[in-house]
């Protein structure tokens, strides 16, 4: 059975975010409305809005409405997904045809830009300057991470540091920002904001490393994409970097397979994954992921005791154990 995030504590608020988003993307332009509803209905884990809501629970004495902020974070994520699908030439996302598949690349490009603008609008930057600043900074970093990932495809000389540079920007910072936004919006003390930000950051790093491990060891029907699909696209992740750093002949073979862009197709890819596994690439990566989980949980010690704290601990554990 698939394990899922335990967001029971904020289930009602997450439903409100869903409703808010559905109303918000009800744009007058029919194509924009239909395409936005299309991606919204495709679902998703809604991790980012959940972290805005959960972080906001610690210090929300004035009962600030966090729903618009949570929705804005998800909208930014949606905008990036629309562009990612063009970049990845993806035909389906979460089992549904992508926007580019239905409406075309150029339409998707403009729809993504439009969604990003609407997300900024939703933040109301003139009134919420601190939150606007956090999102602006993260948006820049995310793009830098994506560019770096694209530039470094099939590059076997990458270091662990290069990998961390990418995943920090690609994944960790938006989760960290989601936590920070929830805290800022509810006027949390600076120490609380910092702890929640670091929690989100460490969790995000662990999440991405686990994702990269699952890409190679998950079952196709569970992870929802072919095994080794990132590697097939030339994305060099931590397990591969560890295997490449091994001082033996199989590491040389792995370099050859990657440099040859898996010219023999699945056969080459399977061989590469076997080498990565044999050289403990997955095991070593999981150890790093676990260390990040521990660091994330350590940050929770600085936060007040409440049920939300337990939820955040459980989420960290879940990331460690998840299989998809």
């Amino acid at each position: 059975m698939k394990k899922v995030f335990n967001f029971n504590e904020i289930k009602k608020d997450l439903n409100k975010v869903e409703k808010f988003l559905s109303d918000y993307v009800n744009f007058p332009h029919p194509d924009l409305r239909n395409s936005s509803q299309h991606i919204l209905q495709a679902g998703g884990k809604r991790i980012r809005p959940a972290f805005v809501l959960l972080s906001g629970k610690f210090f929300n004495l004035n009962n600030t409405d966090l729903v618009p902020f949570a929705a804005a974070v998800e909208l930014i994520h949606m905008a990036t997904l629309v562009h990612d699908d063009i970049i990845d030439k993806a035909d389906t996302r979460r089992g549904k045809p992508t926007i580019r598949e239905v409406w075309g690349n150029k339409f998707s490009l403009h729809a993504g830009d439009y969604l990003f603008a609407q997300a900024i609008k939703l933040i109301n930057p003139q009134r919420n300057k601190k939150i606007a600043k956090v999102l602006a900074k993260i948006s820049v970093e995310m793009c830098q991470g994506e560019i770096q990932q694209l530039i470094s495809t099939f590059d076997t000389n990458q270091s662990v540091k290069d990998y961390f540079y990418r995943i920090k920007r690609k994944t960790a910072l938006l989760i960290a920002a989601s936590c920070k936004i929830g805290a800022i919006a509810t006027n949390a003390p600076q120490e609380g904001i910092n702890s929640l930000y670091k929690y989100g950051y460490y969790l995000g790093m662990a999440f991405q490393i686990k994702d990269d491990v699952l890409d190679m060891q998950g079952k196709c029907n569970v992870i929802g994409k072919p095994v080794g699909s990132d590697l097939a696209q030339g994305i060099i992740t931590l397990p591969t970097i560890f295997a490449l750093q091994t001082n033996n002949t199989s590491a040389i073979k792995l370099t050859k397979l990657i440099n040859g862009k898996f010219s023999n197709g699945q056969e080459d890819l399977d061989e590469a994954i076997a080498i990565i596994k044999a050289n403990d690439g997955l095991k070593k990566s999981l150890l790093i992921s676990k260390r990040y989980i521990i660091k994330a949980k350590e940050q929770l010690k600085f936060l007040p005791e409440c049920s939300t704290k337990t939820s955040l601990e459980q989420i960290a554990d879940y990331i460690n154990e998840r299989e998809f």
Binding site: I87, F116, K129, A136, V140, C143, I147, L150
Partner: peptide, 30 residues
């Protein structure tokens, strides 16, 4: 022609937003 220009365009778009926030010019944003 496609992948890098999309990301660079996104980056500049975000950078624009970031500069307005950092340099206290958010009044221009609307």
């Amino acid at each position: 022609k496609v992948q890098l220009p999309i990301l660079v365009g996104d980056l500049l778009y975000s950078r624009f937003y970031e500069i307005l926030c950092i340099e206290d010019c958010i009044e221009f944003l609307d």
